[in-house]
């Protein structure tokens, strides 16, 4: 182990780690809205809208994220859809994780006992009001756990953005391995940074989960 090298390159890796965090946070933020939109579309009475949402989720989950990224970044310009690499990473990341997240959200809403919604409706709550003030608070705890798992997936998926030449953590690590020929040192350091990020995410989820548990009856 060459510790001098590790000290020397750590600023480079930490700078790249911020790009990883930036892409992950923005993907999650926009992905959450995509997911809510998909859940909303699936509650329509008009069937074709529901089919559209189901089809979208099925296609996104049935094809590799990597191929989606390549398709939008390299294939996009030929249909007049040009994005810079980081925006493309966030865009594809959000629309990809949104599909997974909508399933997680839908699952946690469905796990709330249907008696709760029926009781609320019979007490005179409207459909939207029942969802917001009765069902969602009870689904929140479960939702936080299942969305939290996806947050970790997003962090790990962000490594694939290196393929479209975004200098994030994995790309920086690969470049440094290429220039220094010290794979073990660089892998150790990069893995350490990923582990710190993943544990930070897990800590945030746990805190949010404990808060949400106050409202649950599950």
């Amino acid at each position: 182990m060459d510790f001098n090298l590790m000290v020397e390159i750590s600023p480079l890796l930490i700078k790249a780690a911020w790009i990883t965090i930036d892409i992950s946070v923005r993907s999650l933020f926009f992905g959450f809205f995509v997911a809510c939109g998909l859940v909303f579309l699936q509650s329509f009475r008009f069937a074709p809208i529901r089919w559209f949402a189901r089809g979208y989720i099925s296609v996104i989950r049935g094809t590799p994220y990597f191929v989606q990224l390549l398709l939008v970044f390299y294939g996009g310009p030929s249909i007049g859809f040009r994005l810079d690499p980081i925006t493309c990473g966030v865009f594809v990341g959000a629309f990809n994780i949104g599909a997974y997240m909508s399933e997680a959200i839908r699952g946690s809403i469905e796990s709330v006992d249907s008696g709760q919604a029926e009781a609320a409706r019979s007490l005179g709550f409207g459909r939207a009001q029942t969802l917001v003030s009765i069902v969602l608070p009870q689904a929140a705890a479960l939702m936080i756990r299942s969305v939290g798992v996806l947050a970790i997936v997003v962090v790990k998926n962000s490594s694939l953005v290196s393929i479209i030449s975004v200098v994030e953590l994995t790309y920086q690590a690969q470049r440094l391995i290429g220039s220094t020929y010290k794979p073990l040192e660089i892998f150790t350091l990069t893995a350490l940074i990923y582990i710190i990020i993943v544990y930070a995410v897990m800590g945030i989820i746990e805190l949010a989960y404990r808060r949400a548990m106050r409202y649950t009856t599950l």
Partner: peptide, 13 residues
């Protein structure tokens, strides 16, 4: 806890 691509680069190089 680490991404697949990083593991692949490590093994490859």
């Amino acid at each position: 806890t680490t991404p697949l691509l990083l593991q692949l680069y490590f093994l490859y190089f």
